[in-house]
């Protein structure tokens, strides 16, 4: 074992500290840009919406990153599960009888969407991905096809137009003031949900036996296999958890964004950017990168709205961010060599 490299603790902590420093500097830089261009109220709103976007990206990317780390499968259908979560929310809202309190509907939709996402994820993994275990590239290609198919099915059932956002519980359907600007409480709720999930997944990874197996598997799946642990089963579990979290994310976003067939692809692209910046298989990387990308996008959006009257820079900025990171560090901010 002594001849295997790269995982020696000293090296990891050193690199980690460096990556954290870069990330912190980046956030400070964004903050400075914000303060230079906008009044304080706008800055607060930009930061909060950056956080809220970042949390949504995180919910899509978290599963992708861990799944990729375990068996090198990049699930390009993850965005579709996000979208399905939103539509499941609508279905549950509609299915509950008239007169059900909104809060009950909302909670039911959250739980239902999560379960539905997990269930479908399980079916996809067992029926479609498992047979292709021996051909990793084809698994990725398959998920790309799956994403198209899911989007089309949704389009068949619900039509190409989007659905208007569903109604959140009254307590969340308000705004509050920050430095003189208004911010929706619901977006704050998204931030809280995202943060809670971020922490609980982190706890799962750090404190539980399953988490230790997952982390070991991400480091070296062959070694874990050699210890007599069935990595395939762990993989299925992680895949299901990932899709469930993505679906939960979609449902959480539904009262704000509504639901539309292309939202999957949209969020998938940004999630890809997030995990590439974060270093593909690093959980910390994904968590931090999603916030960085969220903040970058929010800042760029505000800038381009102010100067060009179109949000174009939001998408472009994330892409440019990714390209720069790849050029400077070809394995992402938190990636291993």
């Amino acid at each position: 074992m002594t001849t295997t490299f790269d995982s020696s603790p000293a090296l990891r902590t050193g690199a980690l500290r460096q990556s954290l420093l870069i990330s912190a500097l980046f956030v400070v830089g964004l903050l400075v840009i914000n303060l230079l261009f906008f009044p304080v109220g706008t800055v607060a709103v930009v930061l909060l919406s950056g956080l809220y976007q970042g949390m949504l990206f995180f919910l899509v990317a978290a599963g992708m990153s861990i799944v990729f780390g375990l068996l090198d499968v990049l699930n390009l259908a993850q965005g579709s599960f996000f979208m399905l979560g939103a539509y499941a929310g609508f279905a549950i809202y509609g299915a509950l009888p008239e007169g059900t309190p909104t809060t009950v509907r909302f909670v039911a939709a959250l739980v239902g969407a999560t379960l539905a996402g997990g269930l479908l994820g399980g079916v996809v993994e067992i029926a479609l991905l498992r047979p292709l275990y021996v051909r990793p590239i084809f698994q990725i290609v398959l998920t790309l096809g799956l994403a198209t198919a899911i989007e089309e099915i949704v389009r068949e059932i619900y039509g190409p137009a989007g659905l208007i956002p569903i109604e959140p519980p009254a307590a969340l359907d308000t705004t509050f003031g920050v430095f003189g600007a208004q911010f929706e409480t619901y977006r704050l709720f998204i931030i809280v949900v995202g943060f809670l999930l971020m922490v609980s997944v982190s706890l799962l990874l750090q404190r539980t036996r399953l988490g230790i197996i997952i982390r070991a598997g991400v480091q070296d799946s062959e070694m874990v296999e050699a210890l007599g642990i069935n990595v395939r089963r762990v993989f299925t579990l992680v895949f299901v958890l990932g899709t469930a979290v993505a679906a939960l994310g979609g449902m959480t976003a539904a009262p704000f964004l509504g639901a539309y067939p292309t939202m999957g692809t949209q969020f998938l692209l940004t999630a890809i950017i997030v995990i590439v910046i974060g270093g593909m298989s690093s959980y910390e990387g994904t968590a931090i990168a999603s916030i960085l990308v969220g903040l970058t996008r929010a800042t760029a959006e505000q800038l381009s709205l102010q100067y060009f009257n179109t949000p174009i820079l939001a998408s472009v900025s994330a892409l440019v961010f990714m390209v720069i990171v790849l050029l400077v560090r070809p394995t992402g901010l938190f990636g291993r060599e």
């Binding site: 090198d72 692209l269 590439v276 174009i312 472009v316 892409l319 790849l326 394995t331």
Partner: peptide, 28 residues
């Protein structure tokens, strides 16, 4: 630029690259 990075990173890099073109061509 892309071949400095390996395997799937390259695939994702090209995806993002094409997307920039798509966004630019379709922008107002």
């Amino acid at each position: 630029v892309g071949l400095r990075i390996k395997g799937l990173y390259f695939a994702l890099f090209t995806l993002a690259f094409a997307e920039v073109f798509f966004l630019l061509a379709g922008n107002r």
